[in-house]
Design a protein around this nucleic acid. Structure first.
Lengths: 249, 249
DNA sequence: CAGTGGTCTAGACCACATC
DNA sequence: ATGTGGTCTAGACCACTGA
């Protein structure tokens, strides 16, 4: 990163700065290495700190950098490939899925979820919270919504909250015939609680995966999963080429 | 949007501001309506313009707002659902696909693409550029990379560039047996040329979809598609539930 | 041309991690 | 206590759109 000054160019400074930094990351830094701090970098390139930060923000968005308050800015490893399609299109909680149940409760759904499930927003339903880790790092949180009508067999003496209840709800799901599923991916920003679990600041960019599970001719459950956009590459495999899919990480 | 002042809270101002604006969008504004300008809004909430802009940026990231230089800030319509899985897992260019060929050429691949195709980065290959529109709006650009070895039948007298060449390359692909495909989604920022085609500023957040096509036991083609993250929700359908898939828009 | 959002500056203070 | 990134301010000027 020998460059000390930016030559005048028509494009925005932060954009030019970004490409200069990006090249430097490729050629002069190793994964995990700490960059000079923001004030130092800004001075070195002769720009205001806010301008430098605009460049760093973009590089973080692209997964090239990781910034942590109180610590510093480090070079990020390549994004992890995380498989998003459930194995063999099975229910959440099936043996071998990557998620760990955290909690469960019974409550009324957010409006958007009620619409997806085509139900009265005032009706309460089962919610199961789960998290997912890859290589020890939390990569996603999820809330699974299951209308009570979908799992009538849930034991009346199941605990009202907690991991045990989560397991009980998931167990009931396995008894249903899964007829298909449906997924959508969009960009979002982390809510405060998700951010905490993902070890990020509120508002960090996340990839939101909405999955609908069909059973008995209707939508029997909806899962809303929130993945860290900086560290994750979501993979959608194809059963026709199973061998190659495994290389995607 | 009657609120004139922000009461002091422990959370960042821009975060609080975002939720206040978000509520106002739900209750007081219609899709397409123009908000007051940034200086006006900042004054109304008693914050600096930069702080207000931080809130607007997040709302734009979430697809709630659309900002256009010289015009103003408008309330965005709900995101469009765009199907990303090729119909019946067919080759690009098959009848009925949503893409329109723009151009084609022969050139050497970027390093990342060479790795995906497991080929020497110095070898040239066919590149086909395509775009995709939904409801008249450009939503994605794509570059398709096809190693020359994969389509040996390409007529020697095919035009060296232009849409006609694009069609010629796509036509050759149809002759191969497609054995499977593989997709990955990650967050990126728009390169200058993509941004122009998508009618956005360079650096805008985009969803990058990488598709690998398998034929003859190897990766026969790679497509890198860039979708506007603000307006698109990528849907991955399931053949088991075709009827529902159509509702996803 | 006037009005909009986009870029940029030079400061200040805060929240957090580490020693 | 020190040093980091995160938030915030009050300005300035630029690039673009549309009348």
């Amino acid at each position: 990163m020998g460059s000390t000054q930016l030559e005048p160019v028509p494009e925005p400074k932060y954009w030019h700065l970004k490409t200069v930094l990006s090249d430097a990351l490729d050629s002069e830094f190793a994964v995990g290495e700490i960059l000079p701090n923001e004030r130092e970098l800004a001075a070195r390139f002769g720009v205001a700190r806010a301008t430098l930060r605009q460049a760093l923000e973009q590089l973080e968005l692209e997964g090239r950098l990781q910034r942590r308050r109180g610590v510093g800015t480090t070079v990020a490893p390549p994004r992890m490939g995380v498989a998003v399609t459930d194995p063999e299109h099975s229910w959440p909680g099936a043996p071998g899925d990557a998620w760990q149940p955290v909690d469960a409760a019974e409550q009324t759904p957010p409006g958007a979820v009620a619409r997806l499930l085509d139900m009265d927003p005032a009706t309460s339903l089962h919610t199961v919270r789960r998290t997912r880790k890859t290589r020890g790092q939390p990569v996603a949180t999820e809330v699974l919504y299951v209308p009570a009508a979908g799992v009538p067999g849930l034991a009346a003496d199941a605990p009202p909250t907690g991991p045990a209840r989560a397991h009980a709800v998931l167990r009931e799901l396995q008894r249903l015939r899964l007829e298909g599923q449906d997924q959508a991916v969009e960009l979002g920003s982390a809510r405060a609680d998700d951010a905490k679990q993902l070890d990020r600041l509120p508002g960090s960019p996340v990839l939101v995966v909405t999955t609908r599970y069909f059973s008995g001719g209707r939508t029997a459950a909806v899962a809303v999963a929130t993945y860290r956009a900086d560290t994750c590459r979501l993979t959608f495999g194809d059963a026709t080429a199973p061998a190659v899919q495994l290389l995607a990480g």
